[in-house]
Design a protein around this nucleic acid. Structure first.
Lengths: 156, 156
DNA sequence: GGAATATGATTGAACTCTCAACAGTTCTCC
DNA sequence: GGAGAACTGTTGAGAGTTCAATCATATTCC
């Protein structure tokens, strides 16, 4: 077996710890902001993706990949959002297994309300605490990771 | 009210999107690695913090803050870990409200097993996908955010 | 053409997390 | 010194998530 683990250097460990704690703090703070308006970040992401989709619609599985949720989880969440009247399911013509999701007018209105809250929270909690260069570097690093993982996983 | 939201620039939005998706992908991948060994990242963090505590013990509330979990959540998780035989509760002499948590020998053994898995996963999934400079920049940015938030929140 | 395999989405039960309420203890301050 | 406020940790119920199984449809390939 691969018996020699390359442990983290002190430097690496510090970075990794900061990453872990930071992401948790940020997620918690953002969730809190949205919770006061009756949603969670994970639900917000779904609404947001739908609003930006070419046709205003997305297949369940495509959406699940975009927001990094299991199909099962998305099914449950979509049902909840549907009951709230924010999204709507549609059959897919070309593939009768498929289901597409779209925003309802009420969902779009809600999203607009939430977006204001969310964007100012993102600034207050993350962007404003860094210099533009630092935030840019953060974005760059995360982009590289995302692209690299997408290539690795997307080898279906 | 604050009526003019400063929306994100294209650049900012790209960074924020990458951050969101990246953190989710990383969290999912790391969790998957640990799940194969019977744990979650959130539980691993608890074990890890305990192992590094000065006396090998931490107060529930201090631990909760370290791993960014609610006290309630930590209570439940600690109960679970206790049932697994990995941690142990202790009364606190000086403060009779208090409870301290520590690793059992079995918990320490388990942690050592998990640490190998986890560290190689962190390298494979995050560190190795970036140049040392990029990872360093990521750590730097997150450190700044964490410190800044700790100052803001820690104004008890 | 049709059996075997793969894919898309859902289901329900088990598990985990959240939220509000509570009980016990310590602190504050008149 | 004692009432009120604040803090610590737990509890239980409800809400959300995971996991494995299932159903329906598409694709593959003999």
């Amino acid at each position: 077996m691969e018996d020699q683990v390359r442990w983290l250097t002190t430097q690496e460990q510090a970075s990794w710890r900061a990453y872990l704690r930071g992401t948790r703090l940020i997620a918690t703070a953002l969730d809190e902001g949205l919770t006061r308006h009756g949603t969670r970040l994970t639900e917000y992401e779904i609404l947001s993706m739908l609003s930006e989709a070419p046709d205003g619609r997305l297949r369940m599985s495509a959406l699940a990949q975009l927001v990094v949720q299991s199909r099962s989880r998305l099914t449950h969440t979509a049902t909840r959002l549907e009951r709230l009247g924010w999204v709507q399911r549609h059959a897919v013509r070309e593939d009768r297994r498929g289901v597409e999701l779209s925003l309802t007018p009420a969902g779009r209105a809600k999203l607009e309300e939430l977006a204001e809250v969310h964007v100012s929270d993102v600034r207050r909690i993350l962007i404003d605490r860094l210099t533009p260069e630092e935030f840019e570097a953060l974005g760059h690093a995360m982009t590289r990771v995302v692209d690299s993982i997408d290539v690795t996983e997307g080898d279906c």
